[in-house]
Amino acid sequence: MNIFRFAGDMTHLISIIVLLLKIYATKSCSGISLKTQELYALVFLARYLDLFTDFISVYNTMMKVVFIVSSLSIVWSMRLHPVIKRSYDKELDTFRYYLLVLGSFVLALLIHEKFTVQEVFWAFSIYLEAVAILPQLFLLQRSGNVDNLAAQYVFFLGAYRAFYIFNWIYRYFTKPYFTRWIACVSGLVQTALYADFFYYYFIRVAIGGTVS
């Protein structure tokens, strides 16, 4: 464990806490893409198949459980919570995300570390995570100015993967056998997708006003 990865995991956790706060403090999920949340739940379920078979550390297992439970509870809130589900922008959240799932799965069948169920699903989860934010970015763009908590959620989510890139650089130079090309390349693509969002976010923060 290095500081970059720990910082990445913490910013990832913060992004989920910010989202849960927004949803439960305002009893509203306006501006949040349910599709992105469902993709994240799928990412965690596909990636943590080894939850019960590989014990790496208490921290690792605890965080996996937290990510799975929190992502499923966000999907539950947006779909079934009597008050919250009414504020879901159903008519704006129209990204055809099944294409993202299909594309990631096909890519995982082609490019993976080993052709086993666990490894193919791991690669699938890595590719899917890279593009899972697209419905959310699409929704932010369509809903005009973003309310700042939704923007902060996306900001922390982007920061988490950026920290991971530093983690991979650090591990590459400190552990000669470290080859994590699938996660590295996919993580770079994922962070690049946030680039334009970061640009508008910093402009808004720098000059005040709202991002539109």
Binding site: R5, D50, N60, K64
Partner: peptide, 10 residues
Amino acid sequence: SSSVQYHDEL
């Protein structure tokens, strides 16, 4: 690292 490339990252 061991031959089996287990995933220690989240």
